[in-house]
Nucleic acid binder design. Sequence first.
DNA 1: CAACAAATGTTGGTTTAGCAACACAGGATG
DNA 2: CATCCTGTGTTGCTAAACCAACATTTGTTG
Lengths: 200, 200
Amino acid sequence: MIANENDPRVIRSKQLIKDAFIKLMMERDFESITVKDITELATINRATFYAHYVDKYMLLEVLFLEFFDQTLARNKIDDSSFSIETLEKLIMAVCDYFMFIKNACRKISSSVMSLMEEKIISRLAAFIAGIAKPCVAEPEHFSEEMELSIIIVSWSIYGVALKWNNNKSLSKEELAVKSAKLIQNGANGLLLLSSAKGVL
Amino acid sequence: MIANENDPRVIRSKQLIKDAFIKLMMERDFESITVKDITELATINRATFYAHYVDKYMLLEVLFLEFFDQTLARNKIDDSSFSIETLEKLIMAVCDYFMFIKNACRKISSSVMSLMEEKIISRLAAFIAGIAKPCVAEPEHFSEEMELSIIIVSWSIYGVALKWNNNKSLSKEELAVKSAKLIQNGANGLLLLSSAKGVL
DNA sequence: CAACAAATGTTGGTTTAGCAACACAGGATG
DNA sequence: CATCCTGTGTTGCTAAACCAACATTTGTTG
C-alpha cells in the first residue's frame, strides 16, 4: 500500500502510533515494547503499523529525528552565515536534545542512543551544509574540503555534547562557549599544548 | 452505509465527533455550532458525520442521554427493590445531571433542555420499570396501573430536580429527602392540606 | 532437546473514511 | 428583486484501515 501522506487518515494513524509509542517509552525500556503494544494502545490494527513503518526501530528513528529537528528549530539559529555563535548554538541544541530524550524516556539504553548517533550527526551535517554552502563564492572548488570540514565539525559538536550529557561539570552555556572556540581552532590548540610540553 | 458498531474505526470516529462537540459546547451556544465546525475539529470528513448521526440534534440527544446514564450509574442505586431511598437517589441523580450539563456547556438554552426533557424522563421511567417490575408477583395484572405510576413518579422526579436547578434554596440532599416523601404520598398531602384549609 | 507460546512480518479480501461534486435552503447584501 | 455566500444533506468512486490467516522467528519452560 502506497499511502498518500496528506490523507487525514494517514496523518491521524501516524500520530496515534507516535503518541502511543511516546507514552510507552515513558513507562518502559525500548526493547520491551512490542509492535502489538503500540498498536493496541493506539487503537489501530497491527497491519496499519506496517503500512507506515518498517519496524519499531524505524519508528524510533523517525521520532527521534523529529525531536532533534524540533530542538534545532527551537534554538532559532541564524542561518545567514556560519559563525562562532552558530557553533555555540548547535552545541547547546544537541545538549537540549539529549536532555529531552532523557526526560521523555523512562530508560534509554546506550544501544538505542548509538542507533541514533549517525542519523543525528548526518542531520547536523546537513543543517550546517545548508548554512555554509550558500556563503561560498565558488562552491565547486571548495566542495571537497568543505564536506570534510562539515563532517569534522558535526562529529565534534556531537562529541562534546555527549560528554557533557554524561558528566555535567559545566553549564550548557559554558560548555558551548569553550567548546566552540576549541572546535574552531581544531587540532591547533592541542598541537600547541603538546609542543609546549615537548611531546612533539 | 450500515456501519458495524464494533469496528474500531467507527468507534474512533464517533468518539472524535463527541470530543469535538463537547469542546465546542464548552465554548459556544449549541445553535451556533455547525456540522462543519464539528467535523473540522474532529479531523474527520463531513460525510462521515452523516454516516453516524442524522444531524447535530441527534448527536446532542445521544450524548446527553449518555451523560444521564453515566450519572445514574455513578449514583449506584440499589436495583433489587424500589424504596424511598431509591426515590431519593433518583432525585439527586437528576440534580447531578443538571449540574453536569451546566458545567459542561458554556450556555445551555432552555430550548435545548426541553429537547432533552422527554428523553430523560423516558429513560428515568425505563430505569424505574427495570427495578419495579421484577418485584411484582403478577405483572400482567398490575401492568396498567404500574405504567401510570411510573410515569407519575418519573415526571415528579424530573420536576422537583428542575425546580431545584433554577432555585437552589435547599441542599440536594434536603430536596431529595423532602421531595421523596411528597412523591411517595402523591397528591394525598396536597389534598389533606387543602381540605384542612377548607378548599375542598 | 522438544514443545509450546508469543511476537513478527506479510497477504488478500472486506469495510469504512475521505473526497469532490451536486442540488437545495436560508440569510445577508447590493 | 437578484445575487452571493454559507451550511445542509446526499451520492459514487477511491483509498486507507481492518481483519483473519499464514509462515517464520524467537524465547522459554518442562
